[in-house]
Amino acid sequence: MRIGVLSLQGDVSEHLQMFARLGVSAMEVASPGELSHIDGLVIPGGESTTIYMLAESSGLFEPMTQMIKEGMPVFGTCAGAVLLARRILDGRADQRSCEAMDIAVRRNGFGRQIASFEADLDISVIDKGGAPLRAVFIRAPIVESVGPEVETLATYKDSALTEPTPVLLKQGTMLASSFHPELSNDTRLHQFFVEMVKEGSS
């Protein structure tokens, strides 16, 4: 089993380090041919407009989208979640997404960098009785609507929010987070994704 990390722009190496710590084979994916070597894909954090543009120009966008829709496990973090979403709000006019996961995502919904933050999340849905996960949100998107087939695995709520907002979502073989699990020292979400890939390739 090998996991690919879309390596066009963004914090690719943090994801690779996470898989290295878990003892899982991982590789960078920067061209269409490399897609055939992987069993699952991570779309990292970065600038979603740039990643989209580079995915399009490198010829990766169409085959990658097709493989995701055909059930290749995928994990999108922050910009990666934007790229997976069925609908992007406040995107660049020509920006497209894979339209694979039934969520609508507002880019930078939490605000500019001055509003970026870290906070604890309850992830007991995937780690029963486990410690909270320290999550880092950088100019993070807000998931504004969630389709019926999407499972919300974690939400965030503090005194500034009236309702809990979904921040970790799963639909079939797709996993998305509006925060950056790759920036903290906690490997549990990457482990969770590795299990999803194992199930997919078995």
């Binding site: 390596s7 066009l8 722009q9 963004g10 914090d11 690719v12 190496s13 943090e14 954090g45 970065g46 600038e47 740039t50 922050c78 910009a79 960098q113 001055i114 509003a115 970026s116 933050f117 870290e118 906070a119 604890d120 999340l121 309850d122 909270p132 880092v136 950088i138 100019r139 965030y156 709520k157 503090d158 005194s159 500034a160 950056h180 920036l183 903290s184």
Partner: peptide, 24 residues
């Protein structure tokens, strides 16, 4: 105990944006 209130302007949050710009 869940430290659920936002901690803004931490070193990790500051460095985090720089990490997101890598390769750009």
């Amino acid at each position: 105990a869940l430290a659920q209130e936002r901690a803004t302007g931490t070193y990790l949050v500051k460095r985090g944006l720089a990490e997101m710009l890598r390769g750009g």
